[in-house]
Each structure stands twice: as C-alpha cells, then as structure tokens.
Design a protein around this nucleic acid. Structure first.
Length: 691
RNA sequence: GCGCCCGUAGCUCAGUUGGAUAGAGCACGGGAUUUCUAAUCCCGCGGUCGCAGGUUCGAGUCCUGCCGGGCGUGCCA
C-alpha cells in the first residue's frame, strides 16, 4: 500500500517546476483530503497563496498547474477541477483505487495468523512480543556497539510488533527513538495517574516501530527516593522477618508500612535519623540496605508486570532504567557541569558577561542559597525562566543538603540516552504539569552541547509529549469516593466486569445471543473492557484533560472500542458464513488465490468510499507519527469502520449478484478487516472474532 | 504577579497547523430487519466557535486587549 498523498504530491511537484521553473522546487502543494465529498477526494490549496506572491490570478495559476500535470496524472485521477477562489479538486479514478488495493500483498505466514477465534489470547501474545521477527532492524545500527546495547535482551526485537504490514514499506531513514513512559513508583501500587503515560507511550512505541524505527522503550522507575530509607528502616525495626522471607509480604502491605513509617518518623526523631541513615547506606551500596531495596523492587514488579500484560503494554524488566540506574553518574555529571559552566566573571544568577554561544541560549552554573543551580539565558543575556519575584529561576541540580534530585537524574538520563543508547530522538510521555521542568531540562541539554552531533541528524530531538489529566464527572481529578487515588488494577477489573455484564445482557436477549461459552464470555469481556478504557483515552486529543465516563467508553455507538471491534467481528462473520457455504475454512475464503488475485470492482459508491478509506491508512500512520497525535488514528478507524458499515448495509457480499462481484467484495472485506486489525494493534487493542 | 494550557451544539469532544456552507457521538424527533451480527444503518432538530478589535482574497485556527477556568511557579517527581 502506498501513500495516495505522496503519489499526488509527486504529480504536483512536477507541475510546479514546469510552471515556476526552479522557484517551484520544494513548494508544498498543500494537498488535503477534500473538506466536502462533493469536491472530490483531495484538494490542493497551493494556487491561492502562490498567486498572491506572483501577482497572478489564483484561478489562472491553478489552470496553468493543471495544464502542466505530467501524463501519469490521467491514470491516477479524473480531470482536475478548479473551483471557488482557486482550489484544485482531485477525484481519484476507481480503476486506480482498485489497482492499488490489488497491489496489497496477502497476509504473510506468521504465528498470529494461525490463531483461530478460540484463542484470541494468542493474538495478544504475538502483539506484545511472542512472535519472532526476521527483521532485526540492523539498518539502525551505527557501527560502534556499546555495552548498553549488548546488554539489551533480544526480546526487544521480538516486540517489533505487527506481522501484517499491508505492503507498507519501512522508513527509508530509520531512527533510534527512545520512548520514556509509564514510570511507576516502586513500593506503591499503580493508580489511574499512570494509565495515560503507560498506554500513550506504548502506542508511540508501536507506531514508530511499525514505521521501521528502532524503538528503545525506557521505564524510568521511581525507585530511589527517600521513601526507601523509611521503608527499610521500618522493616528492619518492625518486621525483620519480611526481609528474610519476603514471600509473606505483599505490595499492599508495603504501602501501609510506608504510611506507618511516615507517622513514626513524625513522632520519633530517632527513627527519622535511622531512615536517613538507610538512604545514605543504600546510596553507598551497603549490602544489607541493597538487599532490602531489591526485595521491595521485586515485589513491586510482581504487581505491575501483570498490569502491563493485561493492558498489552510491551514493557519488560529489560526496559527498566529507574532513578537508581543513574546513581553512579550523578556525582561526575554535576562536577563536570560545575567546571564547564561556572562563570568566573559573573555572580551566581547573574547573566554571563561574555556569552560565547553566538545566537544560541547558554547556561551558567553556580551555588545559590546553598543549592547548586543551572541558570538559562537567551542569546541577549535575558533569563529564560523567572520566579514569582521576576528573578532568574534556576534548575536545581544539587540540594543544599548535598543530595541530588530528579533534575539531576533526568540530566544523567538524557546524556545516557544520547551517548550510550545513541538516540536520535527522545520522547518523554508525562503529564502536562511537568512542562516547565522539561523545558529547563531540554534547554540545559542543548546549551551543554549534548544534542549536537557530527552525524545526521545533526541535532537530537527532545520532545515532551505531554497529556492532560483524567477527570471525574465532576470535572475534578478522578478519585474514589473517599478521595483516594483509584488503583489501576481496580479500574481494569471494573471495566471488564461492566463489559461482561453487557455481554451477558445480550446473551439473554433473543436475536443478540451468540451462544457464547463461559470461557468466551470472559475472553470477550476482557478484550472489550480493556479495549474500551484504552480507546477512550487514546481517542482524546492528548493535550487536553478528559472526562472519564464508563457509559461513553463502553457504548456501541460512536467512536468507541466496542464499535470498532463490532465492525471487525461483523466482517469475520461473513467469512464464517461464506466458509460454511463453500465448505472451506474461513481463512481460505479470504485468502484463497481466487480472492487475492481477482480484480477489485468499485461500482457502488459505498465500495468506492470503503476503498478510499482503506488506502488512507498509510497517510494516517504518517501523520500520527509526525505529530504524535494518536487521536488521528482513532478518528481514521472510526471513519473506516463507518465506511464499512455503510458498505455492509448496501452491498450484499455473499449474495452478490455475480461471482466476480462476490469475490471483489470479499476482498474489500478482507482488506477492511486487516486494516482495522492492524490499526487497533497499533493502539494495543486486540480484536475478537465474535461479539 | 509571571509563565503554559484551555473556552466550539443542552452534554462529551473533533477540527489535518490559514481554506469552500464549522463536524461527530450522546440526548431529542422520525424511519429501516422474510436477506451476510439491529451492539447496526438512514433522515431530522440543534452554533454569536467566551467577548472586542486587528492582520488578508479568506480566521474556530495567527496577533493584541479583556472575561472565565485549569495547571505550574527554588531545593517533591
């Protein structure tokens, strides 16, 4: 499947050069899907803006462009139309659309394709890492192998996810992209606040991997704070047995221990001192403290790994590089920052007297109120950040008590990711409230010169893919009735229970009953419930807050996971029926040479509309990756599912009037199902054969 | 105070980076099932895009100022 947009782009590129000469090279033809179906499939808005600069009439210029189109245009689209102030309307030829559909190769043999309806769980496994891939992404290798790369488990490549590429080529210039997401706190249960980062980051990873980039997932665990001192001290004092036979203690206990330890610390200065000593011991590498810490981390992992599995999130222990990982790097990093950026000729917090960075922002490092600070300056010497008093607002990298903080760890992580993971691009998936912190972090890394490199790309991209909060119906951050954070495990349980109730209600109703076994009901409920939670979240504009509503996300109507999954199940049902009639297998009905090789016929408007939607998948994935805008994908899938529903209503498939048409429609169904399945897979949502 | 984000139909949200008559879903009203899954589809109703200016062939989108809301704002992450 190739991008229709790119095909049109090359036509316009040539026409622009023919009309404008060299000035026309590199001009964006401003191609967009048509805003209104009546105007065609795509439109170019290039003539209006260009005419202005050339002092020409927009419609005249549009006409000259149309006249200058290469002859190949006649194969691709109907004659161009010029409309309104100078729009060029483009309608693709049904014969060309059909040829493009025919060019999509069949599903390659892979374990996931041998799955039948009874073992949808197998799909999940292949989606999150069960299927070995022959593609090891060697193109992304830059020669020098680092210890970090070698230490990475081969499991990473096995997560290169989707076997059915629909004939979509991989990126010509694959990049190494670090995606930093999820980041649960150790010794605490995951709560609803971790949901967005976890599933949004996982979707970025899937989409970028699908495009052929080398994705390096990083789980920046909160595993090194002062809470461990408290916890270890408390365990040693109150429950030493837990440290020798950890099986007896669960994570939920750790949480209550932590609360008790907090209370104790407030009442008892001696305990406070012990806790502090444990932190020091831990950070020094004291074996006893370290053992206790490891136990706590392991117990936490036993809690969050099943949640990842349930969500279909591809994070593994190999992706974990928590705060602890950077411990040894903090001291040297800070010392280096001090020597490189201390300003001898200006006081701490004062602008540098002789900025040597040319037109780039620069940083200075110095001690203020006992804390080691980084200040950021514009090329003109003005502070980039200000505090409430209007004074330069620094990023603290060492507290006045000598301890390092998150900014220090984050700096070390940037450096590690660029220097040792060889990242071309780093994406941080955290909530929007940390925006300023990341601005400062990125400004520091850039000014320190870490992002500049000799090889291409010349500048490492640092991006904060921020997201809004999940709100309750009262528009306040989602909490339990008693005001506590909602545990993620509970949220997912409720989603599945609600989905199960809906399925059981249908089973009790005549006409909707599918005759599911108990096992099937649970399986479908799991897929629908988890899918609904994920889809509702991913379908939002990432930046804005969104209101959590069970009823909306589990609705069959509208842009929801159940609707999408229903569309898929409906298609699959056609195959089952067709297979019964033919006495062949369901897969056989879809992938037989007969169906795969015969031409698609696009006579009915609904067939044409569906064909167009199917082929738009490529450009959609492209836009999603370019802008990290996942809701473009959900919107696309909704549009595709809608196009299928309309096709389904008006075009009989199995009872098509002619054999050729039947085959053609089966092929359309097959392609629609494959795109739905791959698209949902990119969202980490699995499909079911029946629902 | 300063910085960032937001304000679009009764409700929940889109709006492809400046394009044609601002779109969905829910809710509300009407219609479609002897036919492949009606958990579906079709039709209708519903708008001062917070307010006021500005930029231009053209503004929900860009600029300025107000009004209203959220978040952040020196040693938590």
């Amino acid at each position: 499947m190739k991008s229709m947009l790119l095909c049109l782009q090359s036509l316009f590129a040539e026409a622009l050069v023919r009309v404008l000469g060299e000035d026309g090279r590199g001009v964006d033809p401003l191609l967009r899907p048509a805003t209104d179906e009546r105007h065609g499939d795509y439109q170019s808005n290039v003539a209006m803006g260009l005419a202005k600069r050339m002092q020409a009439k927009p419609r005249d210029l549009a006409q000259r462009l149309v006249d200058a189109m290469p002859s190949a245009a006649a194969q691709i689209c109907e004659p161009f139309e010029i409309a309104g102030p100078g729009f060029i309307n483009i309608r693709l030829k049904p014969t060309w659309l059909a040829a493009e559909l025919n060019a999509i190769p069949p599903v390659p043999d892979s374990p996931s394709e041998t799955c039948d309806s009874q073992s949808a769980i197998c799909d999940l496994q292949s989606a999150i890492g069960g299927s070995p891939s022959s593609d090891s992404g060697t193109t992304g290798n830059r020669g020098l192998s680092s210890p970090a790369r070698e230490s990475q488990s081969p499991a990473r490549d096995s997560r290169s996810p989707i076997a059915d590429r629909l004939g979509i080529p991989r990126a010509a210039d694959p990049q190494s992209v670090v995606v930093d997401y999820s980041s649960p706190n150790i010794a605490k249960q995951m709560h609803v606040g971790h949901l967005r980062s976890t599933i949004i980051g996982d979707t970025f990873s899937r989409v970028l991997a699908f495009q052929g980039h080398r994705v390096i997932r990083q789980n920046h665990l909160g595993d090194w704070g002062k809470q461990f001192g408290m916890l270890i001290a408390w365990l040693k004092e109150k429950m030493p047995a837990a440290l020798t036979s950890p099986a007896d203690v669960r994570l939920a206990d750790l949480e209550s221990f932590y609360r008790e330890a907090n209370a104790l610390a407030e009442a008892d200065p001696a305990f406070q001192e012990k806790a502090r000593a444990e932190v020091v011991a831990l950070h020094r590498g004291d074996p006893g403290a370290l053992a206790a810490w490891r136990y706590i981390v392991d117990e936490s992992r036993r809690h969050y790994m099943p949640i990842y599995a349930r969500l279909g999130v591809g994070l593994t222990p190999e992706d974990e590089r928590g705060e602890s990982f950077y411990n040894d790097r903090l001291e040297p990093l800070v010392r280096e920052m001090e020597t490189s950026f201390s300003c001898a000729d200006s006081a701490p917090g004062e602008p540098p007297s002789s900025p040597d960075s040319g037109d780039r922002p620069c940083i200075t490092v110095g001690v203020s109120e006992g804390a080691l600070c980084v200040w950021h300056w514009t090329p003109a010497g003005a502070p980039m950040f200000k505090n409430p008093e209007g004074q330069p607002f620094p990023m603290i990298i060492r507290k006045s008590d000598g301890a390092f903080i998150y900014a220090t760890t984050d700096l070390a992580a940037v450096r590690f990711r660029i220097g040792e993971l060889h990242a071309d691009r780093i994406i941080y998936v955290t909530d929007a409230r940390q925006a300023q912190h990341f601005e400062m972090l990125f400004a520091t890394a850039r000014a320190a010169g870490w992002t500049r490199r000799g090889e291409k790309p010349a500048e490492v991209r640092l991006e904060h893919a921020s997201f809004g909060s999940i709100l309750g119906e009262d528009r306040k951050p989602l909490k339990t009735r008693s005001g506590e954070n909602i545990r993620l495990a509970d949220l997912l349980d409720e989603a599945v229970n609600r989905a199960e109730a809906l399925i059981r209600a249908n089973e009790a109703e005549e006409g909707k009953c599918r005759g599911f076994t108990e096992e099937e009901i649970r399986d479908v409920a799991e897929a629908v419930g988890i899918g609904a939670v994920k889809y509702a979240d991913l379908g939002q504009n990432r930046q804005s807050d969104y209101v959590f509503s069970w009823d909306r996300m589990l609705a069959m109507e509208g842009n929801t996971a159940p609707y999408m999954m229903y569309a898929y199940a409906r298609i699959r049902s056609i195959y089952r029926k067709g297979a019964q009639a033919d006495g062949s297998t369901a897969e056989g009905a879809a992938n037989s040479a007969e169906v795969a090789c015969r031409a698609v016929i696009l006579g009915h408007p609904a067939e044409r509309a569906l064909a167009l939607r199917i082929l738009r998948f490529v450009e959609t994935v492209e836009s999603v990756a370019a802008g990290l805008r996942i809701n473009l994908l959900t919107e696309y899938l909704y549009d595709l599912a809608g196009a299928f529903m309309k096709f389904y209503e008006s075009c009989p498939v199995l009872a098509a009037p002619e054999a050729d048409l039947r085959v053609s429609r089966l092929r359309l169904c097959d392609l629609a199902a494959r795109v739905l399945r791959v698209g949902l897979d990119l969202l980490g949502i699995r499909v079911v054969e029946r629902m």
